Amino acid sequence: MFQGLIDWLNRLGPRLYAAFLEGDRWQLYLQGLVTTLELTVCALIVGVALGVLVAVIRTAHDQQRPGHRNFALAILNVICKIYTTVIRGTPMLVQILIWGFVIFSSSRNKFMVGVVALGINSGAYVAEIVRGGLMSVDMGQSEAGRSLGLGYLDTMRFIVIPQAFKNILPSLGNEFITLFKDTSLVNTIGLAELTYRAARIAGNTFDYMPPYIGIAIMYLVVVIILTWLQGKMERRLRQSDRR
């Protein structure tokens, strides 16, 4: 038994060397990780901006007073509902393939395509997260802001959204972590992120175990760090509430 383990370890050394050290291949993993993080941040910015816009439109429509319906707002609300239904009802991989090989088939900027695909997908989920947070704030807060002479947008910006942010932070943090892991799907359109780099190295060495186990560990380490940062931010917000 021990001899078999020793033999396996002896065979593992050259495999690890070929996957990570030979030809400075570790630099390729780091480049892929940097691209993955940049893609995640850019897509999250797009997703949050789009999600907040959709959430505000849908919340404004749902909170209209009886007899004071806005036709333009109703049209925008229908568009937003179609958007969230289609995006949440179809697989992300299929969406990425459509963006990469149908809509932007002639584009060589794979990073931009990845940001658009992931950002629009994330926006649908962020919209529901933010909408739930906005609806959780008591209507009296909005009425108080309006009574002070604030417009709807100012009331949302200064009163409602800051309170809703504390409620949606855990879900928003989970969406960020999910988005980070889902960036691995954009390797299907040729973007050289972490998974793409590992696949190319595995193809060159004809050994798939070390590269894929290696990037799995890298993904796990980053997720652990992000989870720790999320928990730390949540504790600070709870402490500020006590004060």
Rank of each mutant, 00 (worst) to 15 (best):
I129L: 09
C80F: 08
L53F: 12
A19T: 13
P210G: 07
R243I: 05
Q3F: 10
R238C: 04
T188K: 01
F20S: 09
R15A: 12
M233I: 01
I213Y: 05
G203V: 05
L12A: 15
L33A: 14
G203E: 09
M135C: 02
L169Y: 00
N187Q: 13
A72G: 10
A60G: 13
L93M: 13
G149P: 03
D241K: 13
A60L: 13
K81T: 11
G4W: 09
Y83I: 07
G132H: 04
A144K: 10
D7W: 04
I159G: 00
A55N: 09
N70G: 04
T35Y: 05
Q163S: 05
V222C: 11
L148G: 07
L118G: 02
I79V: 15
A117I: 04
Q63Y: 09
A199I: 03
F176S: 03
G132R: 01
A127H: 02
L134W: 00
R146Q: 14
I82V: 15
Y17H: 14
V126Q: 09
I75T: 13
M218F: 11
K110W: 07
D62G: 15
T40P: 04
R200W: 05
L237E: 03
R11F: 12
E175R: 00
D62W: 03
I177S: 03
R235K: 15
E143L: 12
R146D: 01
M92P: 01
G23A: 09
L37A: 13
E193Y: 04
D62S: 15
T183N: 04
G214I: 08
V54M: 07
V221I: 15
A199H: 06
I45V: 15
I98A: 09
T36N: 03
V116G: 01
C42Y: 12
Q63F: 08
L185P: 00
H68Y: 11
L73R: 10
G145Y: 06
L194W: 09
A216H: 06
I6L: 15
R11S: 14
T35C: 10
Y196L: 02
S184P: 04
L28P: 02
I215S: 01
G114R: 01
E234A: 02
A72M: 12
G133Q: 00
Y152G: 10
Q141T: 10
V113K: 05
P210A: 05
G100L: 11
